[in-house]
Simulated assay, not measured.
Amino acid sequence: MKKDIDFSPVKDVHVVIGKSDEGWRVFIINRNKSKLENVMVTSRGYGETKTEKQKTSILRHMIPYIEPGMYALIEPIDESVFHLNNEYWVSYFIDGQVYDKKFIFVPDSIVEENLIFIEELGMSGILHD
C-alpha cells in the first residue's frame, strides 16, 4: 500500500526549462552523487482563462538512468502553454529506494526575466528545485 512506502525527500534533482536557438526544452538534472535509475516523468499543463478551463495531454517519459552530474532531455515545450501550470511529476530510484516529487512551473513564470545560466546545460533556463 502507498502508506507503507517510504518516500524520502528529493534532493539535488532539478527540472529546468531551457532556452536555446532550437527553442524551449525541458530537462532533468541530477546533481546527486548517485545514479538515478528508472526515471519516470509525467508532464501536463492545466489552468483556466477568464472564460474556460484548459489542459494539455498527459505525456509520460521513461529515462533508464541519469548518471551523477548529468542531465536528460524530457521534452520540447511550446510557448503557447506558458500561461498554464506546467507540471512535471518525477519518480526515480536510488539504490532501490523510490523518490517522488512534483515540479510545477506556475503561469507566466517561464519568461526571459527569470532566465539564469545553467552550467550543466551550457544555456540559460529556469531552474525548479
Results as ranks from 00 to 15, higher is better:
3 K>F: 11
4 D>F: 13
5 I>T: 12
5 I>V: 15
5 I>C: 06
6 D>V: 15
7 F>M: 03
7 F>C: 00
8 S>P: 00
9 P>S: 03
9 P>I: 02
11 K>A: 07
11 K>Y: 07
13 V>T: 03
15 V>A: 00
16 V>Y: 05
17 I>Y: 02
17 I>P: 05
17 I>Q: 05
18 G>A: 15
18 G>F: 04
19 K>D: 08
20 S>K: 02
22 E>I: 10
23 G>P: 09
26 V>H: 03
28 I>L: 09
29 I>L: 15
32 N>M: 06
32 N>G: 01
32 N>D: 10
33 K>G: 07
33 K>Y: 06
33 K>L: 12
33 K>T: 13
34 S>L: 10
36 L>S: 00
39 V>M: 05
39 V>C: 00
40 M>D: 10
42 T>K: 12
43 S>M: 09
43 S>K: 09
43 S>E: 10
45 G>H: 02
45 G>N: 05
47 G>L: 00
47 G>F: 01
48 E>F: 08
48 E>T: 08
48 E>Q: 14
49 T>M: 02
50 K>M: 14
50 K>L: 14
51 T>H: 11
51 T>N: 11
52 E>H: 10
54 Q>S: 10
54 Q>L: 13
55 K>R: 12
55 K>M: 09
56 T>Y: 00
57 S>F: 13
58 I>V: 15
58 I>C: 04
58 I>A: 07
58 I>F: 03
58 I>R: 12
59 L>P: 02
59 L>W: 12
59 L>K: 13
61 H>N: 08
62 M>Q: 13
64 P>R: 01
64 P>E: 08
65 Y>L: 05
65 Y>C: 04
65 Y>W: 08
67 E>L: 12
68 P>R: 04
69 G>C: 04
70 M>A: 14
71 Y>M: 06
72 A>V: 01
73 L>C: 08
75 E>N: 14
75 E>T: 14
77 I>W: 01
78 D>P: 02
80 S>D: 14
82 F>Y: 05
82 F>I: 05
83 H>W: 15
83 H>S: 11
84 L>S: 01
84 L>P: 02
84 L>C: 06
86 N>P: 03
87 E>C: 08
88 Y>E: 06
89 W>V: 09
91 S>A: 10
92 Y>G: 00
93 F>W: 06
93 F>M: 08
94 I>T: 01
97 Q>E: 14
98 V>L: 14
98 V>D: 06
98 V>W: 05
98 V>I: 15
98 V>S: 07
98 V>N: 05
99 Y>F: 13
100 D>P: 00
102 K>M: 13
103 F>V: 03
106 V>E: 14
106 V>C: 07
107 P>S: 01
108 D>M: 09
109 S>T: 15
110 I>P: 07
110 I>L: 10
111 V>L: 08
113 E>G: 07
113 E>Y: 06
114 N>P: 10
115 L>W: 04
119 E>M: 08
120 E>A: 11
120 E>C: 01
121 L>Q: 06
121 L>T: 05
122 G>Y: 07
123 M>R: 10
124 S>E: 15
126 I>N: 04
127 L>I: 11
127 L>E: 15
128 H>I: 05
129 D>Y: 12
